[in-house]
Amino acid sequence: MEQGAAKIAKMLAFAILMGVAITAFNPHYRQAFLAIARGQPQESPIWKSNLEYYPDIVLPGMPPWKPVIPVDDYAVQSVSQAAAQP
């Protein structure tokens, strides 16, 4: 069990080092880091890529989520196609 604990510690240290390297060299992670550091995490490209993923979970200080009522595709399609008919 002690060996397992040591392995986890090594994995953690390696992951953090690897993460630092990726954050330094990957532009999107770098921008995410800077956005968090500036106190504007909502400007982070990572946060933006997740806007539609569990949209009800927002950042502190952001306005509460409001659902976007979906447009009925069929209705739009049928109206446009009906209009195109002679």
Partner: peptide, 8 residues
């Protein structure tokens, strides 16, 4: 963020 970058 660092851990997630590696995990990415």
């Amino acid at each position: 963020l660092f851990l997630s970058a590696a995990n990415w």
